[in-house]
């Protein structure tokens, strides 16, 4: 199953996404959690903690900074940029905005 969660700010998107991912992970699914919010907070709801959530660097940012090589495959990107959350969930942050005029 491939699920996207949408709605207004504060509606509970991140809480539902994170809890659903953990529940499905516990039920034996191989779960990939993608945070495509420019203000990524999925790490909080998945339970990786605020410090780790702040450390997670976005795929986009890492590529823009030239710190990471482009990966030829989606699997490579998940491997290179992802982080492990509880219940076997793999978390990847897609975008994040940290500066004025990021281009």
């Amino acid at each position: 199953m491939k699920i996207a969660v949408a709605g207004k700010g504060g509606a509970g998107k991140t809480t539902v996404s994170g809890t659903l991912a953990r529940a499905l992970g516990r039920a034996g699914h191989t779960v990939l959690a993608l945070d495509a919010d420019a203000n990524p907070m999925l790490g909080i709801s998945l339970g990786v903690g605020p410090e780790r959530t702040e450390e997670l660097i976005s795929v986009r940012q890492a590529l823009d900074d030239g710190e990471e090589e482009h990966q030829p495959t989606a699997e490579g990107m998940v491997e290179a940029f992802g982080a492990d959350a509880p219940d076997g969930v793999r978390l990847v942050v897609v975008t994040r905005i940290d500066q004025y005029d990021p281009g």
Binding site: G9, G10, I97, D101
Partner: peptide, 10 residues
């Protein structure tokens, strides 16, 4: 709007 995006884009 929510979050840092529009602050970032002035």
């Amino acid at each position: 709007p929510a979050g840092p995006r529009q602050v970032a884009y002035r």
